[in-house]
């Protein structure tokens, strides 16, 4: 009798062991980088950044930028290029809405040195294959990329690895904004928009960015999933955009610091001290149709979700130092 159900369990058990094996190996990427095994470089993909650098940074050179907006993509990415039409549309509209700000998105927030998965020394082939599956067919293999990036989010939330990973990400972010002529000694504010799992990455990096620049650093969590990280209190202010239909927010229950009765956690302290604000996004889901970045006008009329999100982000960027002026419900 026992052999029967244990045979039945064998498949999920094998899958679990393979997953745990993979998951246990992932920290070596971060730790090996720290130990200097993979060199010191910060990579950037010239095939995308060249075009964007010339188009968006030649302007700020004439006119100093009023804000640097760094968009950190959700876990679907493999490189600094976006795969998502909705993300692209959101960024275009945001750039048009904020002509004096530098909006940057060519950053891959799930790699310690900004090296795209498709450029990795050993596994590039595997990721190219997974990317092809993701683009060309609704194959399960495409989800390998999401799982891989989710594990990086877990690293950024793990107390053992987070300080290492977050320092790496802060370096990548500083390097990216400096490529667009950001001066660490200036007081031009930096806005980190963390979409989904990148909410954790954005918040985690603030602790270190804060040590290197005098500029105010704000975090805009776009349906972000994050733990109660010390970065929440290091940020000038955290704006958490929370869609009323965002089911991914259930993940917060995995993070003890986000539970409301953990009064001493960074998140709850920030909420009490008015250094973090939750903004309700009426009727918005996490992703896809009805999500924060949906560009189609809703059936019941009114502006598209992406326009409401862009407008709110623009308001936050304009009045970040006076959070009381920012609406609590959109």
């Amino acid at each position: 009798m026992f052999t029967d159900w244990s045979d039945l369990l064998l498949l999920p058990l094998t899958a679990l062991i393979i997953f745990l094996f993979w998951a246990s190996l992932t920290p070596f990427e971060t730790l090996g980088w720290w130990a200097g095994w993979f060199g010191n470089a910060i990579y950037h993909d010239v095939s995308v950044s060249e075009a964007e650098t010339t188009s968006s940074s030649s302007e700020p050179r004439r006119r100093p930028a009023t804000a640097y907006v760094l968009f950190l993509s959700g876990i679907g990415r493999v490189s600094g290029q976006t795969l998502s039409y909705r993300e692209q549309e959101f960024l275009n509209r945001l750039r048009n809405r904020l002509p004096s700000a530098v909006v940057i998105d060519n950053i891959f927030p799930y790699s310690v040195n900004n090296l795209a998965l498709t450029g990795q020394p050993i596994f590039a082939g595997l990721w190219k294959w997974a990317l092809a599956r993701k683009l060309d067919g609704p194959a399960l293999a495409g989800y390998l990329i999401n799982i891989r990036n989710l594990l990086q989010v877990a690293i950024a939330a793990d107390k053992r690895y987070a300080p290492i990973y977050n320092q790496a990400m802060a370096e990548v972010m500083l390097d990216t904004v400096m490529r667009y002529h950001f001066d660490p000694k200036s007081s031009v504010p930096i806005f980190l928009i963390g979409y989904s799992g990148a909410g954790q990455i954005a918040i985690g990096a603030v602790t270190y960015l804060r040590e290197w620049t005098k500029a105010p650093i704000y975090v805009i969590s776009l349906g972000g999933i994050f733990s109660s990280d010390p970065g929440i209190l290091a940020a000038s202010h955290v704006f958490h955009l929370w869609g009323t239909r965002d089911q991914a927010q259930i993940w917060r229950f995995l993070m003890p610091g986000r539970w409301s009765w953990m009064a001493a956690s960074e998140w709850n302290r920030a909420l009490r001290q008015g250094r973090a604000t939750i903004i309700r996004m009426e009727g918005m889901g996490h992703t896809g149709r009805g999500g924060y970045l949906d560009h189609r006008p809703p059936a019941e009329g009114g502006p598209a979700n992406v326009d409401r999100t862009v407008e709110l982000v623009a308001t936050i960027i304009a009045y970040a130092d006076q959070p009381e002026r920012i609406p609590r419900t959109v």
């Binding site: 990579y43 950037h44 993909d45 010239v46 490189s79 795209a116 683009l135 390097d175 400096m178 660490p184």
Partner: peptide, 22 residues
């Protein structure tokens, strides 16, 4: 002021552009 060395640490890579769904 360590970030003044960032320029020297930059490495450019040229990756094939992401192919959109055929």
């Amino acid at each position: 002021n360590w970030y003044e060395q960032l320029e020297a640490r930059r490495r450019s890579v040229r990756l094939p552009p992401v192919r959109k769904k055929r």
